[in-house]
Design a protein around this nucleic acid. Structure first.
Lengths: 110, 110
DNA sequence: GCGGTATATAACCGAGGGAGTATGCAATGG
DNA sequence: CCATTGCATACTCCCTCGGTTATATACCGC
C-alpha cells in the first residue's frame, strides 16, 4: 500500500469523518450514514474504498455489517511523517539531542 | 486550514514527491521539475497549490524562485493522528493497568 | 538595448471520481 | 412464506482537476 493512496482516501471529508467516527468503536453502514448525513449507497461506496485500503475490516452479523477501524494505514502515515518531525519538535534542534532521541526510541520499542 | 485539505495536497504523488524533495533543502522550480520529471508549468502549478496550503514559502532571487518547506501543514497531520496512536503504540503505561491490559488484549486478538 | 533564461499564468482538453437513483440480494421476523 | 430490513452494486450525470500547449513577465549577461 502506497502512502499517497492513504492520503487520497483521507482527502475526502466524508471518508475522514467515517474514520473519525469509527474511533469510537465499530458501527454499521446505517449508523454511519445516519450520523454523517450520507445516503446509504454513498456510505457503502466510501466504506468499500476504506476497506480496499485496509482502513476498516468488516464482520457480518445477520443483515448488518459491522465496520471496524484498523490501525495499519494510519500507522503508515505516522511513519511517513517521521523524517519531518525535526521541523517542529525543538528537542531535536541539537545534534546531541538527536542521538538522545534515537536511544529513547530504542527503549520504547522494547 | 482544514486537515482534509492537507491530505488532498499530499494525495497526488507528484506533490508528495515535491515535499519529499524539499526535505533536503530549498530548491528552484527548474530543479524540482527536472528532478521529478515534470514540465515546468506543471511544477509551477503544484507549487502554487503547495503555497496556498502553507506547505512551502517562496524567496525571489533574480529570476529564480527558491521554494522552502514549511512545517505547519505536516504538523497538523501529526496532531490529527494523535488520538489514533494508541492503536499501534504500546506506551499506555501512564493510563493505568486496566487500560493497558485492555489494549494488550485487543492486540492479541488480531 | 537584445537574446536567453526562469517562472507564472491562461486556455484548453480529457479522464476520473463523487453523488444520486434504481435495482438486486440475502437474511430476518412475524 | 412473505414483507421488511440492511447493504452492495450498476448505471448515469457532471464537475473537478491534472496535464499539455502557448503566452506573458521579469531578470540576467553581453
Amino acid at each position: 500500500m502506497v502512502v499517497s493512496a492513504v492520503f487520497e482516501v483521507l482527502a475526502l471529508p466524508a471518508r475522514q469523518a467515517i474514520v473519525e467516527r469509527l474511533r469510537e468503536g465499530p458501527a454499521t453502514v446505517g449508523e454511519l450514514a445516519g450520523a454523517l448525513g450520507l445516503s446509504q449507497p454513498l456510505a457503502s461506496k466510501h466504506l468499500r474504498v476504506l476497506r480496499d485500503c485496509g482502513f476498516v475490516s468488516v464482520r457480518a452479523d445477520a443483515q448488518r455489517r459491522w465496520y471496524e477501524l484498523r490501525p495499519e494505514p494510519l500507522r503508515e502515515v505516522d511513519r511517513w511523517l517521521e523524517p519531518y518531525r525535526w521541523m517542529w519538535e525543538e528537542r531535536l534542534d541539537r545534534l546531541g539531542d538527536r542521538l538522545d532521541a534515537m536511544a529513547r526510541h530504542e527503549n520504547e520499542e522494547k
